[in-house]
């Protein structure tokens, strides 16, 4: 088994899920509570990775972070090397790719919080930020865990985006799913089977956590 690839993948998935927790919560809060009439534009962008072929998403990310783009040039000038085909580039792509898997469960959970409880908190003099952490997040605990775990699990299995943005560099961007593909190409079915089984086991246990936490069936998008 390619332990380097396994550890790299777990690291990528953990970092992706953690970062998505930090940026996904405010995005979900805004999506849930904003009364802006053009909000659906942002909602659609967040959901885009659900329907876009990974290669298409990967292609655009590659172009966006490559040396041809202003962002890519800026990154290269600051860090010293370009973003594509590095672990950081892969992380950036993973965050975008798994964004809906974090934001949607968060938003669904926030949406189910009784608004009167939130208003009660405000009238008690508790700020919006403190209300968020003291009340909304605890009441949405299952949704927050679901979003974290799903973005983690989803990152574990990504293939198309990784191939487009990360390539296949051992110890840098070669993830488990790429490794399995390589093994199959090399007609090493035993090696592929071992790694595939491990990935299956991890994914299954992760989903067990989600369903055990939720009991209720996970809804993919807030129903309003």
């Amino acid at each position: 088994m390619n332990w380097t690839a396994i550890i790299l993948t777990l690291k990528l998935a953990t970092l992706t899920a953690a970062i998505l927790l930090v940026i996904g919560l405010p995005i979900a809060y805004w999506l849930t509570f904003s009364r802006w009439r053009w909000k659906f534009l942002v909602e659609s962008v967040v959901a885009l990775p659900l329907v876009l072929p990974p290669t298409v998403l990967g292609f655009y990310i590659l172009v966006a972070i490559g040396p041809q783009s202003p962002f890519g040039r800026f990154y290269a000038s600051v860090v010293g090397h370009p973003l594509p085909f590095t672990f950081e580039g892969l992380l950036f792509a993973s965050i975008l790719y798994s964004l809906p898997f974090a934001v949607q469960p968060f938003a669904t959970a926030f949406d189910q919080v009784d608004r009167r409880l939130i208003e009660a908190s405000w009238t008690l003099g508790v700020s919006r930020l403190r209300t968020f952490f003291k009340l909304i997040v605890p009441l949405s605990r299952a949704g927050v865990v679901t979003g974290f775990v799903l973005s983690f699990a989803h990152t574990l299995g990504e293939f198309g985006v990784v191939l487009m943005v990360g390539g296949n560099i051992e110890g840098e961007t070669r993830t488990v799913s790429i490794d399995i593909y390589d093994e199959v190409q090399a007609i090493n079915y035993i090696g592929a089977a071992k790694t595939a089984l491990l990935l299956l086991a991890i994914s299954y246990s992760v989903l067990l956590v989600v369903y055990a936490m939720n009991r209720k069936v996970w809804a993919p998008w807030p129903q309003r």
Binding site: D114, R116, L117, E119, A120, S121, W122, T123, L124, G125, V126, S127, L135, P138, L139
Partner: peptide
């Protein structure tokens, strides 16, 4: 003034007690 700045005490119809 936001609700936080008004120094009010509100009791809502269904009480809105925090279940947490």
């Amino acid at each position: 003034r936001s609700p936080q700045e008004r120094e009010i005490g509100c009791m809502f119809q269904e009480y809105a007690l925090f279940p947490t």
